[in-house]
Design a protein around this nucleic acid. Structure first.
Lengths: 220, 220
DNA sequence: ACCCAAACGCAACGCTTGTTGCGTTACGCT
DNA sequence: AGCGTAACGCAACAAGCGTTGCGTTTGGGT
């Protein structure tokens, strides 16, 4: 029972996520993946992406180094796998009753998620990993595509309330949400200016002003 | 004369940049730095940031490995130094005669710079390096701060032409330019959706719509 | 022209990373 | 319950990374 290490993670219960596309997705394989996932998460929050090593994951998960290299290929694959699991959560965009309220709550979620190291580390780790490996970049693209698709319901509700003009198909909800989120990530990872609530306020205000000016209308 | 390697770079002429803050900024020190800079640039464009190694720079620059570790600390420092030198160029923002034209030309510059591997590699390398080392992050912040300061003249001219309301001090030129650039970098490095000219068009249109709605006015 | 120290070259080294061949475990199927 | 093989553990290894001590070159001041 090498899984029963000092962390004593919940390996056999609900987090024992299966691995689709393989011939033996359950049992030990799932336990291994869950233990590895926990070790990667703790390693990321404690040492960051640059400080995360395969041997660290091997020690803290009880899974042998060889297995990690075989199944995940290296640190990039380990981090990319984290993102796949993160994309399977049950997150739904905020529903405050107004378009501005929804976007503002969403922007604040982003700001606060980067203020907390425990949640900021995995996110920035995958963004960093995407620079090094194509699988990580692909996982990142898929993650945000799915995430912004979920957010389109915000715009749908706003159109239904009459806050935005035209029928539902005439406005690109994904583009609007992306426009609100882009300045935050830009400040966080490109210009490295840091994030605060005024930044979230302005990002939402800019995106909304553009939306009301009709910048996100598709078609006619 | 170990500097005279197979590249035979221009080591003693204008590119022999001095190193401020040291006791011996000129002569051999400057030649070494210039040779290293060229080797880092070629290495980045050929192998990318993850494929850039200190020994590669040592071989292709004629500078010994030990010297690189001592002066630059590692790959992060080498890449950060590239950025310092890049910030000392004579770039000026485009001047097309209209605010939209200037911003659009600027956005196209960004798009085209990422389409060309020779110019995209150093930029993305530094952004990637900023994830791993604080000096690189600081160099990145300083670089873009200085770059956007240069861009403020675009807004100044627009105000002088009467394209934007209010006196010069009432509008945040840096914020406007950042708003136009953010979606491009966001698509390139976060969502990994890739860049094209329509993306530049929309980014400029969104930023301009927000500007005309008064979203970047400071003060009253 | 001289001197001193800053800056660099050199060789050797310990350490970490990633790989390989083989043996063992246990999942899933009949 | 029994079997075949997917999946994992193990030990040993090769290669590359980063460091250290010492000697040599050379820039800059007097």
């Amino acid at each position: 029972m090498p899984v029963d290490n000092e962390q004593n993670v919940q390996a056999t219960d609900g987090t024992g996520v299966a691995r689709p596309g393989t011939r033996r997705p359950g049992g030990r394989t799932a336990r291994t993946r869950a233990a590895v996932r926990d070790a990667v998460l703790t390693g990321l929050t404690e040492h960051g992406y640059s400080g995360l090593t395969v041997e660290y994951v091997a020690e803290h998960s009880g899974v042998h180094k060889t297995t990690l290299y075989r199944r995940w290929g290296g640190v990039d694959g380990l981090v990319a796998d984290i993102l796949d699991l993160a994309g399977e959560d049950s997150w739904t965009p905020p529903d405050t009753g107004s378009l501005h309220g929804d976007l503002h709550a969403l922007a604040l979620e982003v700001v606060h998620s980067f203020a907390d190291p425990a949640s900021a580390a995995p996110t920035s780790a995958v963004i960093a990993a995407a620079f090094q490996s194509e699988p990580a970049a692909q996982a990142l693209r898929a993650y945000y595509a799915e995430r912004f698709t979920r957010c389109e319901v915000i715009v749908d509700r706003a159109v239904a309330r009459g806050e935005l003009p035209g029928p539902r198909s005439a406005i690109d909800g994904g583009a609007l949400v992306r426009a609100a989120a882009a300045p935050l990530f830009f400040r966080q990872f490109i210009t490295r200016e840091g994030l605060d609530e005024p930044a979230a306020d302005q990002a939402v205000a800019v995106a909304l002003a553009a939306a009301h000016a009709g910048m996100f209308t598709t078609g006619t």
